[in-house]
Amino acid sequence: MRKLLSAALFRTTRHPVFLAILLVLPAVLGIATGNTLRYGVDDLFLLPMLFAFGAFVALSWGREHGDGTLRNKVIAGYSRGQVFFAELLLNTALCTLMMLIFAVFTTVFGFSVLGKVPATVLLRVGLCLLLSAVGMGALLSAVCCLISNRALSAIVGVLLVLCLMYGATSLQHVLEQEPTFTMEYFDENGEFTHAEELENHLYVHEPLRTALDVANRANPFGQLNQCMAALSEYVYDWGDGYEPHYDVTAEKAELTARLNTLPLISLFSTAAICAAGWALFRRRNLK
């Protein structure tokens, strides 16, 4: 296993494209995020990072399949489990390293804004970000290991990230709905007449609500969304003369409390993904 890891690491660090994706891209995106934090926390620059994860893992597995080295490793006496977990470990570790580089550069270049956030919250957000990178790396590895065509693997890797993003955004939209909403009525002169409390048909009731919430938090992109939501609550600048129209302290406490359970859900979902990936890889015909 150690030899497999060492060989895979050597192969990766020798390739200039892989090294550029691994070291340069997260640093550039981290600097861009840090410099734009004063306009608000956004996952805008995280998206290219996640596409880079998809590209990196797809190319890594694709090369193993394309060169036939997976088969060679099995012939040389390594079990399929060892081959799978060595590749999965390396991909996951490198995705986490990319996220770490991104987080460090974001913190350094956005320190004037992030300095306002309590250290405990920052640490929790940082931990959740790293665990979401672990989950994303594991999921991409588990899917890409099953596709022997390198080009197809690349398409699937990138489209999987896109699907996770749309899935998380849609779930977030559904879960953010309030049970009721206020409809305001105006007369023909534009004057306010009355308001009426109406039931929101988009609100999802229990037990489906809990199921959707767990699905959202198990999705690595959903985890990132929740980190961003918690962070933006702390760094939002209400400006001179403006006053928040809701209880900010309670909102901060709720969002931070959600970060406490997030690592556990993340670990469980990653373990489940790894197990499913391994089960499928064991039955895979290595041509």
């Binding site: 290219p48 590209a55 190319l59 080009a151 990138v158």
Partner: peptide
């Protein structure tokens, strides 16, 4: 390279659609 070409073209399209044009 087919895989690199696929990735580059796909990422270019995604970057234009999801990043450059919205920004």
């Amino acid at each position: 390279g087919r895989a690199v070409s696929v990735l580059t073209v796909l990422l270019l399209a995604l970057a234009l659609t999801l990043l450059v044009t919205p920004v």
